[in-house]
Amino acid sequence: MSKFEKLDPIIHAPVRLAIVTILSQVVEADFNYIKDATETTDGNLSTHLTKLEKAEFISITKSFSGKKPLTTCAITNKGRSAYRSYLRSLQSYLQKGE
């Protein structure tokens, strides 16, 4: 049996993969933008963002835009490198699966 590279379980969950993919493409994005792009609920998104932040894959900044609270997210170097490894692993699965 051929050996597969392990897929990072933190990134592998669909919503978290979508979040990390978004943040890998931009300098930063706010909570509402990520919510619209991932088509998820506030509560669900908060849970996944917290998991990614605990793993130090993303950084979350809370501020205010006028009187409205603003949550901004950005990918960290650790997160970017984990995402690249994840893509490499995914690629190896696909190649071996062909």
Binding site: H12, P14, L17, A18, T21, I22, Q25, V26, A37, T38, L87, L90, Y93, L94, G97
Partner: peptide, 18 residues
């Protein structure tokens, strides 16, 4: 695995329109 590929593809398509 197909689901993950589809997620990445969809998100890249969305962010490209920015």
């Amino acid at each position: 695995m197909e689901e993950q590929i589809k997620i990445i593809r969809d998100i890249l398509e969305k962010t490209r329109r920015n």
